[in-house]
C-alpha cells in the first residue's frame, strides 16, 4: 500500500504528467469556448421550421419506399417513369435506416448535443489515448533512464512487484483522469446545449450508445497506456515507445498498405492495427475489398466486409498482453547498469 502511495505521488508530481493534464484542460476549454461562441439557442420559429423540414424529409423517404413497393406489386405511381428505384426496396425502407431525419439536422449555427456528443467524445478519446500512451511511456522510461527504478529496487528488491505496482498505479491513475475528464467534458457540453444550443431528442438508445462509446474509449485508453509502458520498459527509454509507434505507422500502416495494394492482397485492412482500433471504438467498421468482385462477371457482387468489436478487442488485448508479458519477462532478468 505504501508503495502504491509513493508511486501515485511520484506520478502526480511529474512535470510531464502535469503538462499533459494542463494541455487536456486547455483543449477542453478551447473546444467548449468555441462551441459556446458559435452556437445559439434556437428560437421557437427556427425549431418549428427545422421540425417541419425533418418531417418533410421523412415523408419523402416514406413515399419513395411506397413507390418501390408499388412497383414490385406491379402498380403504377404518377411520375415513376423518370425515377430510379433499386431492385431491393428494403434499401429505401425508412425503418431500416441507421437514423431518421431529425429537427437538429436542419438547425444551423446551433450546437445540438445529440448530434455532436459522439464526435466530441471521439476527439476526447483520441487525446486520452495519446495522453495514456505518452504518460505510460515517460513514467517508466524516465524512471529507468534516471536510475529511479534502481533506487526503488534498493528498497524493494522485488522486480515484478515493483514493475507491477508501477503499471497498476499508472492504469488506475489514467483511468481516473480519463473517466473524470470525459464525464466533465460531456456534462459541460450538455450544459452548453441547454443554455446556448439544443439538447436534441435524447432517449435510452442515445444514452446507451454514447455510454458504449465512452466505455470502449476508456478501455482503449488503458490499452494504449499499458502498451506505452511496456514498450518503454523493453527499450529502457520513453523514446523507445515513441520510436516504435512512429516506425509502425510509417513502415506498416503506410508503407505496408501500399505494398499490400501492389501485391493485390485480399482485405489488407484486416492486417492493420488501425482497423481494429476503429472497429473497437465504433462497434464495427465496414471495408470494401477491391479484389473480391474481380472474378464475378455477372450479377451483383458485394465486396464489402465488416470488422466487429469482438475480434477487434481480442486483437488489441492480445497485443497489449503480449507486449506487457514480454516487458515483465525482460525486466525480471535485465541487468540494471
Amino acid at each position: 500500500m505504501n508503495l502504491i502511495r509513493a508511486e501515485v505521488e511520484r506520478l502526480t508530481a511529474r512535470r510531464f504528467v502535469q503538462l499533459m493534464v494542463v494541455l487536456l484542460m486547455a483543449a477542453f476549454v478551447v473546444t467548449a469556448a468555441t462551441t459556446l461562441a458559435g452556437s445559439h439557442q434556437p428560437t421557437p420559429a427556427e425549431l418549428a421550421q427545422a421540425q417541419r423540414a425533418a418531417a418533410s424529409d421523412l415523408r419523402s423517404m416514406e413515399l419513395e419506399h411506397a413507390r418501390c413497393l408499388a412497383r414490385d406489386r406491379g402498380e403504377r405511381f404518377p411520375g415513376d417513369d423518370h425515377l430510379y428505384l433499386p431492385r431491393d426496396c428494403s434499401e429505401l425502407d425508412p425503418a431500416l435506416r441507421d437514423r431518421l431525419p431529425v429537427a437538429a439536422d436542419y438547425l444551423t449555427g446551433v450546437f445540438t448535443f445529440t448530434r455532436q456528443a459522439e464526435p466530441l467524445l471521439y476527439f476526447l478519446v483520441a487525446y486520452l489515448v495519446l495522453f495514456g500512451f505518452l504518460v505510460g511511456a515517460s513514467y517508466i522510461g524516465a524512471d529507468l533512464n534516471s536510475g529511479g527504478v534502481v533506487n526503488l529496487l534498493l528498497w524493494r528488491p522485488r522486480r515484478l512487484t515493483v514493475l507491477g505496482t508501477k503499471l497498476g498505479t499508472l492504469l488506475g491513475a489514467v483511468l481516473t483522469v480519463s473517466a473524470l475528464a470525459s464525464l466533465a467534458y460531456l456534462v459541460t457540453f450538455w450544459v452548453i446545449a441547454q443554455v446556448a444550443g439544443y439538447p436534441g431528442p435524447t432517449n435510452a438508445a442515445f444514452w446507451s450508445g454514447l455510454g458504449a462509446v465512452w466505455g470502449r474509449g476508456l478501455i482503449l485508453v488503458l490499452l494504449a497506456t499499458a502498451t506505452g509502458f511496456a514498450i518503454a520498459t523493453m527499450g529502457r527509454h520513453t523514446s523507445a515507445a515513441l520510436g516504435a509507434v512512429a516506425a509502425y505507422l510509417v513502415v506498416w500502416e503506410l508503407g505496408g498498405r501500399i505494398v499490400l495494394q501492389i501485391l493485390d492482397v485480399a482485405r489488407p485492412e484486416q492486417l492493420m492495427l488501425g482497423s481494429y482500433i476503429g472497429a473497437w471504438l465504433a462497434g464495427e467498421v465496414s471495408f470494401w475489398d477491391s479484389t473480391a468482385c474481380r472474378t464475378v462477371t455477372q450479377g451483383y457482387c458485394d465486396g464489402s466486409y465488416t470488422l466487429t468489436w469482438q475480434p477487434a478487442l481480442a486483437v488489441l488485448v492480445l497485443l497489449t498482453a503480449g507486449l506487457s508479458a514480454t516487458a515483465f519477462a525482460i525486466f525480471r532478468r535485465r541487468d540494471l547498469i
Partner: peptide, 16 residues
C-alpha cells in the same frame, strides 16, 4: 528527478 525537492525525493523512498 530534478524537479523533486530533496525532501520529496526522500519522502517517496521512505513511503515505498
Amino acid at each position: 528527478y530534478g524537479n523533486f525537492t530533496g525532501y520529496r525525493t526522500l519522502r517517496l523512498l521512505a513511503l515505498a
